[in-house]
Amino acid sequence: MSSPARTDLGRALCIITGASRGFGRTVAREMSRLLKPGSALVLTARSVDELRALQAELAESEAGRAGLLVECVVADLSEADGLESIVKASKVAFSEDMDHVLLVNNAASLGDVSRYAKSFTDMAEVDSYLSVNVSSSLCLTASVLQAFPQRPGQLRTVVNISSLCALQPFRSWVLYCTGKAARDMMFRVLAEEEPDVRVLNYAPGPLDTAMQTVARSRTADPDVRKSFSDMFAQGQLLTCEASCSKLMKLLLEDGYTTGAHIDVYDV
Rank of each mutant, 00 (worst) to 15 (best):
E253Q: 06
K249T: 04
G64R: 04
S119N: 11
A181N: 10
F232S: 14
K180Q: 04
V27C: 02
G24N: 09
R171G: 07
L130M: 13
A63R: 01
E193K: 06
V104Y: 07
P37R: 00
H100V: 02
S20M: 09
A89E: 09
V197Q: 00
Q168L: 15
A191C: 09
F148V: 02
P222T: 02
V189H: 03
Q55F: 10
D8W: 03
S163D: 12
L69H: 12
L155Q: 05
E96W: 06
T26S: 11
L41W: 09
S2W: 03
V174K: 08
T219L: 10
Y265H: 14
K36H: 08
L237V: 01
E30D: 08
K180S: 07
L175T: 03
I86L: 04
L54P: 02
D122I: 03
S163C: 15
A181H: 09
A53I: 11
S131T: 03
V48L: 15
S39G: 06
S143D: 11
R225F: 13
L41E: 06
R151N: 06
L237W: 05
L155E: 07
A59Y: 11
G22Q: 00
T26E: 14
V197N: 00
D99W: 03
K180Y: 06
R33W: 03
A19R: 00
Y256I: 10
R6E: 08
L43H: 01
L51N: 00
M186W: 09
